[in-house]
């Protein structure tokens, strides 16, 4: 009975972890979209300096985007092209995000807004598809883990 409970806990825990993992990925992608919106507002209305805008956002971000922004800030104005390493994004998403960082602060407001809007548009489409898919998988993994846990417990008992 005790072993069964432990195994049930482990399997359900795994399911919860998998769901959480998927949720974090969704949050990360949503954070990038929010970041684009934040940039748009700060650049077009407040005309704040890029460094200040990025620092402010990094301070409030709770996803991997924070690390990407901080890394960019470390290299800002440097000779090397900014490259992103992140397992939670597809190759295209990384490319688009690199394009965003590569162009930030390098043109007038209109062109900045066009750049941000284009990047947001692309990532937004991906986000919706990803969110739907991952939410299904996440919910399914939790349900499956509960069922599997119960099955194991019953078999052991």
């Amino acid at each position: 009975m005790f072993l069964g409970l432990i195994l049930f806990g482990c399997v359900v825990g795994g399911g919860i972890y998998l769901r959480k993992f998927n949720q974090n990925k969704i949050k990360f992608k949503l954070d990038i979209l929010n970041f684009c919106d934040y940039l748009k507002t700060q650049i077009s209305f407040n005309k704040g300096l890029l460094k200040d805008i990025l620092i402010d956002y990094a301070n409030q971000s709770k996803t991997k985007l924070k690390n990407i922004i901080l890394e960019y800030l470390e290299n800002i104005g440097g000779d090397k092209e900014f490259k992103i390493t992140c397992n939670d994004l597809t190759f295209e998403e990384i490319e688009v995000l690199e394009m965003l960082f590569g162009g930030l602060g390098k043109s007038d407001i209109n062109n900045q807004l066009i750049l941000i809007e284009n990047v947001r548009g692309f990532l937004s489409k991906n986000y919706e598809i990803y969110k739907e898919k991952r939410q299904k998988i996440g919910d399914l993994s939790l349900k499956l883990s509960v069922c599997l846990g119960l099955l194991i417990m019953i078999l052991i008992i």
Binding site: L49, L50, G105, S107
Partner: peptide, 20 residues
């Protein structure tokens, strides 16, 4: 030249566009 302009604008060319 582009890097110098970028640096001079505090990495925010849009913020100094009225000067440009």
């Amino acid at each position: 030249i582009e890097t110098i302009v970028f640096n001079a604008s505090n990495f925010s060319i849009y913020a100094v566009n009225y000067m440009l």
